[in-house]
Design a protein around this nucleic acid. Structure first.
Length: 433
DNA sequence: GCGATCAGAT
DNA sequence: CACATCTGATCGC
């Protein structure tokens, strides 16, 4: 089979079928309302949300993938031969509509997690686990494309349920304060719902976000009337410490930033350690305190709190997932993340083929392997499929090796000290709900 | 003017 | 350092 006939979260020309794991902007980069390169497969909920983000997109291109069901699709290779493959969507528990994608075909068996959270404590994750295991049966996952956003042992944040409780605690212990919570256009709904139901209050959201909430079926917990509540969820980018200081001149207000990432500025400590001085500083305290009870809640400013509420898996969860899947090969899909190290560095010993880091430089060898590699193409800005290895050297130097054409990308990013993800479009027309 | 890409900020 | 996302500038058509 020709390579690149299937694209996942990648919208360049040349594929016959396209898959979207979820509707976050960094996964739809290259997708626009005029896009029409082929059928676009996604979950039912993602399809429902689609018109909101891409009002003019031709909806007849959308194909629904039912969660937990194998779908059979066929492709015609450039040489003219037809081939079929199967795909199953499994709940990724990252944001509404998000799925992992399991592929099975002559190229082998591949699992693409998209962004995912694998919370051992959540009912949803257990369901996903059962679904995944029964789908895999005795199949071996040849390649696992893994959300390695927080693939570093330093990332040790708690469950979202617990982090949400921390937010509630802040709200309760500041009864006279207005509360502002930074969120994005999709995601963190469960946090807001938990606050709303535990405290029995509505939460203010901006008008477009209310429409999204209604689409998701949440009717009663949200409002656009700010006189009804002291808790407001606002676009994350729209407020800063400066904004908060301004607000506090008229009314006591506390800001809460839910994120798996620390929000504090880096205390300078050069030691060349692989985990980096920054992470070490943030988490050292928590890790050394009472057994497993991590206190990562931080008051980073007089009016600002950072809460470790993350829609990505922490390191332990990623590790659990890799242990469960036991893939032959493993690739990170987030190359510009805090994880400078390919996940195989940490998990090589857990993989079926018992790989070592040195194997990063070799393409996986099996029947038809040359065709398999590159068949599923993660978005280049994230998941460099051509990324074959990385190593950290002493000090701050990072050496990255690429195979193939995209040699310059990361090195350019590094030179400019700048990240690659760019927004193409965000149309949120005020229509329907 | 529009889409794509980049730059910068939070 | 970086999450994911926004605004605004610039380039090519």
């Amino acid at each position: 089979m020709d390579s690149r006939l299937i694209s996942v979260d990648r919208w360049a020309q040349g594929s016959q079928v396209y898959f979207l794991t979820h509707l976050h902007a960094d996964h739809t980069k290259g997708l626009s309302s005029t896009w029409a390169r082929g059928p676009l497969f996604c979950s039912r909920l993602t399809a429902k949300l689609f018109p909101f983000k891409f009002p003019d997109l031709d909806l007849s291109l959308l194909r629904i993938l039912d969660i937990g069901r194998w779908h059979s699709l066929s492709l015609v290779s450039h040489s003219g031969s037809e081939t079929t493959f199967q795909v199953m969507a499994i709940d990724a528990d990252h944001c509404p509509g998000s799925v992992m994608l399991l592929f099975r075909g002559e190229f082998g068996c591949m699992l693409y997690t998209g962004d995912f959270r694998w919370e051992a404590t959540s009912e949803r994750a257990k369901k996903g686990r059962d679904m995944l295991l029964s789908a895999l049966k005795d199949d071996v996952v040849d390649t696992l494309y893994l959300d390695n956003t927080y693939c570093n042992p330093s990332y040790d944040f708690p469950s979202r349920q617990l982090a949400a409780q921390q937010v509630i605690d802040i709200i309760v212990s500041n009864p006279e304060h207005d509360i502002i919570i930074g969120i994005d256009t999709l995601g963190k709904e469960d946090l807001l719902l938990q606050i709303s139901s535990v405290l029995k209050i509505k939460i203010w959201v901006w008008p477009e976000r209310l429409q999204t909430m209604h689409l998701l079926g949440f009717r009663d917990n949200f409002t656009t009337n700010s006189t009804l509540t002291r808790v407001r969820a606002v676009p994350r980018y729209s407020f800063s410490i400066d904004t908060l200081e301004g607000l506090n001149t008229s009314h006591p207000t506390i800001g809460i930033m839910p994120s798996g990432l620390p929000w504090v500025r880096r205390p300078v400590e050069q030691n060349g350690d692989i985990f980096g001085s920054f992470l070490r500083n943030r988490y050292k305290r928590g890790k050394c305190s009472a057994q497993g009870e991590i206190q990562t809640l931080e008051r980073i400013h007089q009016y600002m709190y950072s809460v470790p509420y993350s829609d990505h898996s922490n390191f332990a969860e990623i590790e659990d997932f890799v242990k469960l899947v036991q893939p032959t090969n493993l690739k990170g899909i987030v190359s510009s993340s805090s994880c400078y190290v390919e996940p195989i560095y940490y998990f090589g010993r857990l993989c079926g083929a018992n790989q070592s880091t040195s194997q990063l430089r070799n393409r996986h060898k099996r029947k038809g392997s040359d065709e398999m590699v590159g068949t599923v193409c993660p978005d280049a800005s994230y998941g460099d499929n051509n990324f074959v290895g990385s190593e950290r050297k002493r000090g701050k130097t990072l050496k990255v090796k690429f195979s193939g054409v995209r040699l310059s990308r990361l090195s350019i990013l590094r030179r400019k000290n700048h990240r690659g993800a760019k927004i193409v479009e965000n149309n949120s027309d005020d229509q329907n709900s």
